[in-house]
Amino acid sequence: MTEPIISIRDLRKSYGDLDVLTGIDLDIDRGEVVCVIGPSGSGKSTLLRCINLLEEPGGGTIALSGTTVFGDGKPQNLDELRREVGMVFQQFNLFPHMSATENVSIAQVKVRGRSRKEADEKSRELLDRVGLGDKVDEYPDRLSGGQQQRVAIARALAMDPEVMLFDEVTSALDPELVKGVLDVMRGLAESGMTMISVTHEMGFAREVSDRTIFMDGGVIVEQGKPDDVLGNPSHERTKQFLGLVLAN
């Protein structure tokens, strides 16, 4: 039994009076691919954002490979955490004033301390890997949403993270662009990357994830093999949610 790469205990978060996360316990193993589903407002994004401390949790602990990164009510080893955890956002958030390559290189140079040449080489390699080998010098405004999102994935990967977080990365995309991004994520999962992905793509969850988590009202309601959670859920709320999703 190896140590989990992420270990979360009793994670809490509120905005004022609104309790968004009300006690999350979650262990993620190295190489595991986890999909998180749940209704809007259930706290999925907040969970991801707490994991890399874009939001400061209200309580609980988060450990990364055994190192506490949040505990005693405050962040610890924040730099290490951010270096080991990559995140991809729904709105891509590419830097509009930089070319695709520069987007992928900037943090390699400024945070990882690589030389510009070394970084650019790695960036081109990664852009090639996400199918954008011919777009390395384009600026974001000249790329489709799907292409931008793949640059964003390459940008996160360039930091050699141990864990990748994906927050509804295909939700803002036109349907015909979704597949390209999912293909990249599938490839990443097969390469052994540890991934936590909030998604509405049930097909993707079923096919790619090792574990599917259903969240509602700030807690994990149910989790397990995707075929079980999605195909034969044991909780009423999960059934309801999946019924709603299928009805759409």
Partner: peptide
């Protein structure tokens, strides 16, 4: 947009680096 700082921070940039480069 706020997402720009968040993207920069999630890549490990400090506040100062995010300001300066992004």
């Amino acid at each position: 947009p706020r997402g720009q700082v968040e993207a920069a921070r999630s890549l490990g940039m400090s506040h100062g680096q995010a300001m300066r480069f992004v």
